[in-house]
Design a protein around this nucleic acid. Sequence first.
DNA 1: GGTTACTTTCAGAGAACTTTGAGAGCATAA
DNA 2: TTATGCTCTCAAAGTTCTCTGAAAGTAACC
Lengths: 232, 232
Amino acid sequence: MANIKVLIVDDEPNIRDLLSTSLRFAGFSIHAVANGTDAIAAAEKGEPDIILLDVMLPDMNGFSVTKKIRSMGITAPVLFLTARDDVDDKITGLTVGGDDYVTKPFSLDEIVARINAIIRRTKPAEHEDSMIEVGEISINQDAHEVFVNGEMVDLSPTEYKLLRFLMTNPNRVLTKRQILEHVWEYDFNGEMGIVESYVSYLRKKLDPMTTEPLIQTKRGIGYMYKVAKSGH
Amino acid sequence: MANIKVLIVDDEPNIRDLLSTSLRFAGFSIHAVANGTDAIAAAEKGEPDIILLDVMLPDMNGFSVTKKIRSMGITAPVLFLTARDDVDDKITGLTVGGDDYVTKPFSLDEIVARINAIIRRTKPAEHEDSMIEVGEISINQDAHEVFVNGEMVDLSPTEYKLLRFLMTNPNRVLTKRQILEHVWEYDFNGEMGIVESYVSYLRKKLDPMTTEPLIQTKRGIGYMYKVAKSGH
DNA sequence: GGTTACTTTCAGAGAACTTTGAGAGCATAA
DNA sequence: TTATGCTCTCAAAGTTCTCTGAAAGTAACC
């Protein structure tokens, strides 16, 4: 993957750090600022490939920022961060370009998935594939569709995200905490038992269609999506 | 392996010494401090590759320390040390990026394994292989899987840890006390007979699949994982 | 051989962990 | 409103693991 530059704009330091750290770890180049004025300056100077933009900023709102940078000839797509209540026609109307939006609180895996989806759409040359195929299961990330040996399976949103996270880390044990922190929203306050529940749901739906169970339990640690090594 | 610098942050002198000594022995460069303020200074000056950070510190908690050093542009991954009770709800959001956590009381072997796992993930270039291969047995540390002559063996968590410790010290006699101190948690209060029990479990599972017994008894001292010297 | 000290193995109680089902609460759609 | 689906919690039931203690086995030494 080419080096993708992401500009993060959020006034809450917690969110900014959370996003910076985990997107940097996901392989993106990060520049983070706290307000609209800095965002406009950074967009002009840094030539980001994508902008993560909080809609509520202290000095101006995200839409004004977008209009301003677009008028400057910067076409980088914008991924808006917004509170759930603010998702009205303003946003849905604005996501015409390559833009998209995510509601707070989000999950880290969700943000990474959305960024990749946007890059896929806007830079077809240097993207990652929208299909994830590991073992007997394949996922179409654009359509959110899951196929087991060619047959489609209906998953709830959470089941889908959990499966996607497991499949992007095949043959590696993931602790329940890792799973919780990637798949669930960052302010989730509940118990890890929910991971166990959702693994159970996934197994119930997937195992009847596979030749062998795909999600292995690693007692005392967590779970692992197991695939036979292809190749040597 | 490149020289890995580890910054240890813990206010309990016992724990600090325990960690310093055994991590130094494991080949890391160590710098140890007792509080958050010193940790921030040391992180800035020493440029550690990884930070071992107690969550409960006298002056500030580990979360604040992490935020502070991350906001200074230091991206070193953090391995949090935390009491088992605090894991439930307070730590969510901590293990971003390459971070991980270990609950107190931990075992020394566990700490070394986690550090190596984090370095493998964050510095794929200069890491050690996730496979340990000694004699007829190989261990995949990512998947926590053990193979004897290519065939997989199912081990319990403690059996796995014991075998890993023996295999990282081949052809060296390990006293029962050494084994107890590395494989079991540091506050383990029981008898050394448990080492004998677990060696017995391992033999029962491994010996039927090897050409000769691999764990030798050194009467009056301890045990040794024996391998024929492969031509250098 | 006989004695002693150490080691191996077994069996079992209790603890820890996992799986699953039932259901409350909530949001969404008809 | 009612119906449907989803998320999450809780608890019961099942499973596996840990550790202890005792009995049987083995090596070392006199």
